[in-house]
Design a protein around this nucleic acid. Sequence first.
RNA 1: GUGAAAGUAGCUCAGUUGGUAAGAGCACUGGAUUGUGGAUCCAGGGGUCGCGGGUUCGAAUCCCGUCUUUCACCCCA
Length: 434
Amino acid sequence: MKIPPVKGTRDFYPPDMARRNWIIDGWKRVSVRNGFEEYDGPIFEYLKMFQIKSGDEIVEQLFSLEDRGGRELALRPEITPTLARMVNQQISSLPKPIKWFSVPRLFRAERPQKGRLREFFQWNIDIIGVDDVLADAEVILTTIDYLREIGLTPKDIKVKISSRKLLAVFLRSIGIAENKLESLYTLLDKKAKLPEDTFEKLLTEQVTNKETVTKILNFMNCNSIPDIPKLITKENKEFYAYKNVMLVFDYLETMGVKDYCEFDAGIVRGLAYYTGVVFEVHAVEGELRAICGGGRYDNLLRDFGGPPISATGMGMGDCVLEILLKEKGLLGKSLPKKELDYFVAFAKGYGGGTVYKVAAELRSRGFSAVFSYKTSAGLSKLLKEASALNAKKCVIVGQEYLDNKQLVIKDMATGKQELVNYDSLFTQLKPESK
RNA sequence: GUGAAAGUAGCUCAGUUGGUAAGAGCACUGGAUUGUGGAUCCAGGGGUCGCGGGUUCGAAUCCCGUCUUUCACCCCA
């Protein structure tokens, strides 16, 4: 009876695993060099925890279960609630700022489609306890640091940056009621996806006043920071929000990544909990969904029963990234090749236990060594196997071993061979000679 | 949850208005090659044509259902 893989999951055969590790190792390496420390939590949590941040609708998109004690649990669809829980538990003893990263395996019971599966990996970085937008800039810098390292240039991708705070003060200044903001965010977030007239129509339905609609459209289409003051009043609050956006770009310029960044008032993010700088990374060409997104969230720790400490972070899934890298031909280019120090072969009739003994001795000294299971194969076949494994050197056990306890060492790159005494082979070897 | 397209070997695919049509390339295994690798040549294994039903003398091919995949919508943490 054949059992197929579960909908929306992936099998990672060795070549797929190599790609996955390459991506994840890059995430981890870049996190560490940007000063982030790794953390992780359980793969399932109380169902309740995911409702705090995201509400009840989200429950339908969770894999939930009940344990034998009747506890309502769910596989984690994101790790930020876990982060909030963990930080709150030890908040008073953790040195600030908290700069943590994680690469959790996440689960969402959504219908799979391009760049979206039911099980995936996501790189998360967060800075907790810094109000200054310098922290937002550093999160963006770290994101770019990775994307740049894997070969993506400002011609390939753009970080589109805006501010929820700026949007909020703007909307309030033109008379939008506080309780309408949230539903308006959801609509504004779709601007780039909807046709222009459809968007305008939906906006008019929500706002009714034609003049207000025009003001919002003008603001949303703004992609130049110097133009912002023309659109907002010069009251303190608004000017402060505007200055903060300017400041982010100043920091990013100082950090040398301004080429990757642009202001785009159309970036809103669907989620309610963002309160400050928000950003998404998009491919310049193509219709691909956002590669990653993030922003500042001021209230999350408090919502999870902790102190009102501000935080900012970023999440990047592996699915969309992999699609983009394939399109750009950047995946596999820099993948590490198979590595093998020694292949231990034998000339027909001379194998026996010596082959396994040599391999075991090499392994015990820290070298990788492989022997063949084809006990009756000819040397030709065995060397072919050694080549397929990308072996650096090949040890051949043959007549010389019977005659003088000597082994043939063949350098697979140059083809050169030398005779070495069995006893001296291992004493000559030092790990550095790898 | 809604809609559209597609399912033939491990992978990528071909397959004539329905008529000896179960095929190719790659991959895999073996041989040429009993002491010398990456190449080449030859051979071999591998398929309930997603599954079930129907139409027909006859179905990979047409029809219905179903499952899966992909894509779009919803949603996007």
